[in-house]
Write a protein that binds this DNA or RNA. Structure first.
Lengths: 114, 114
DNA sequence: TTAATATATAATAATTTGCTTATATAAGCA
DNA sequence: TGCTTATATAAGCAAATTATTATATATTAA
């Protein structure tokens, strides 16, 4: 175990960030596979700005990082983040969300876009 | 491991609840020892209604329970709660907060009140 | 170059949250 | 019984959060 305890204030900040269904699901999905913005828009059936704003919050604390690939911007978990192990310990309690991406593939929405 | 995964929606709800420094610290403290309201007021140096309101949120989802002892009401972790193991998995990442109660003892604030 | 697509950002509005102040209730004590 | 202490609750308010609408930027394709 590489467990260094996290400060209470920082822990509360991270938990608040994860305490939103959309962001929590995003992070859980990203923990398995990189994803681009339009896929999240499809998955959550919500507006693009809303998705972007959630991603920004995650990015602002360094939990996720972005990488442009042509027209698209892919997000991925930032394993170098100081809170990564704390976040992982939460994520591993959650049910797998891989089916959400598989649904996209079934719809053809995944390939079309990314 | 008695790990039954928690639904995403419920997980987000619990994380939001814990995503407040005061509540997170309360729960961490209660995980070690029962505590009464006036002790929390002392520890967090804030108003009694504010403490009561935080406790109510924790109680409303069944994370903590109360027991009256004469004049005082003691709060404790509700280990029967369906989210208990999820919460525990978070709490065990956090630094021990026992020193906060020991400080009260030093001040005499713990004994005086409870 | 123009149009289309993907994304970010800014401004605004709606909702939620957390604190304060005031008040109510319950128990213990003079 | 009346006073004090511990706690809860209600109402009001300011700050924070989230979603929406509008607009800007970057890339690709025609």
């Amino acid at each position: 175990m590489t467990k260094t305890t996290i400060e209470m204030e920082k822990a509360a900040m991270i938990l608040k960030l994860l305490g939103d269904k959309t962001r929590l699901t995003m992070v859980k999905i990203l923990d398995d596979s990189d994803c681009c913005v339009c896929e999240f828009v499809e998955i959550f059936q919500t507006s693009q700005p809303s998705i972007s704003q959630h991603l920004r919050k995650l990015r602002d604390v360094g939990l996720v990082k972005e990488e442009r690939k042509g027209q698209w911007i892919f997000y991925s978990i930032n394993k170098d983040n100081e809170y990564y192990s704390f976040v992982e310990s939460v994520l591993k309690q959650l049910p797998d969300q891989g089916y959400k991406l598989r649904e996209l593939e079934k719809n053809g929405t995944r390939i079309t876009c990314c």
